[in-house]
Simulated scan of single mutants.
Amino acid sequence: MKIAVFGLGSMGYGMAQSLLRAGHTVHGFDVVPQQVERFRDDGGAGGELADIAVSLDAVVVVVLNAGQTKDVLFGDNGVVPRLKDGAVIMSCATVPPEFAMDAEARCAAASIHYLDAPISGGSVKAAEGRLSVMAAGRPEAFAAARPVLDATAETVFDMGDHAGPGSVMKSVNQLLAGVHIATMAEALTFGMQQGLAPDRFLEVISKCAGTSWMLENRAPHI
């Protein structure tokens, strides 16, 4: 497939690398020119969006939020009007469910498939092609995005046959992740106040019932 990845941050860069390893032709786009140059040095394809958009089979959007996603898809230089019929958008940013439903409708009006596909797993799993994807969309969107999912995800949860539920599930995940991070920070602070060394705290708790993925992933960076 010929694929464009918008957003070459910690998650998007890893996904783009995974797509390259799977044998796809991958174009990377980012607001930071150095990231685009780095990706091309790593094997990414060159070319301006205006020149290559019509030949794309899939577009993977891994930006920060709904505003950035909207700009990539429907802004002044948005990609959707440039794509060929039957291309698929795989939208991975954390966005409101209403945004995902509206984007699906706008893409359908342009004969473009849209998969509501927020991701989880962190930068390491992104680089390994082992993400979890909470995907929702029409069967045709799933089928069109399948090669992208196969290259980037270890687990794909089918959340339904229309956009929206994937983003609902991601919101639930983010709520829990935020609670875990806040509670972990409070627990670590309490332990240190009582004389526990931070590395000892992590060593013990990571092997006990009080652990969590967020604790094991984030505590070493505090």
Rank of each mutant, 00 (worst) to 15 (best):
L8P: 09
L8Y: 15
M101P: 01
S91G: 09
V79D: 05
L49Q: 14
N65Q: 01
G28W: 13
L20A: 06
R21G: 08
A110P: 01
A87F: 01
F99N: 04
V63Y: 05
M101R: 15
Y114G: 00
M101L: 04
I52H: 00
R38L: 10
A50K: 14
R21W: 06
A109L: 07
A45T: 05
G12E: 07
G75W: 04
I52M: 02
M15D: 11
S111H: 14
R21M: 08
V63R: 08
H27A: 12
G9M: 02
R106K: 14
A110G: 00
N65W: 02
S111M: 03
A22C: 06
A103V: 03
H113Q: 12
D85E: 12
L49N: 01
Q34S: 15
F99H: 11
A66D: 12
A108M: 06
F74C: 12
A105W: 01
A103T: 03
V72M: 09
R82Q: 15
E48T: 02
V26M: 06
A53P: 12
D102P: 00
V63H: 08
V60I: 14
A50D: 13
I112F: 13
G23S: 11
A100V: 04
S111G: 08
A87M: 02
V54I: 02
A103L: 03
A109I: 02
Q68F: 00
A100C: 12
I112W: 14
Q17C: 13
P97V: 10
L56V: 06
P33W: 02
V26A: 11
S111A: 14
S91N: 13
G75S: 02
L8Q: 09
R106T: 01
V72A: 09
I112H: 09
M15R: 07
V88L: 00
G46I: 05
Y13M: 15
D30M: 02
G12S: 10
L115C: 06
V61S: 15
R106A: 07
Q68M: 09
I52C: 01
R82N: 01
K84H: 08
R40V: 14
N65A: 06
S91V: 04
P96W: 13
S55G: 14
V5N: 07
L20Y: 11
R38Q: 15
G28K: 12
R38C: 01
V88K: 01
L8G: 05
P97Y: 10
S91P: 00
D42A: 15
V32L: 10
F29G: 08
Y13F: 14
D116L: 08
M11P: 09
F6K: 11
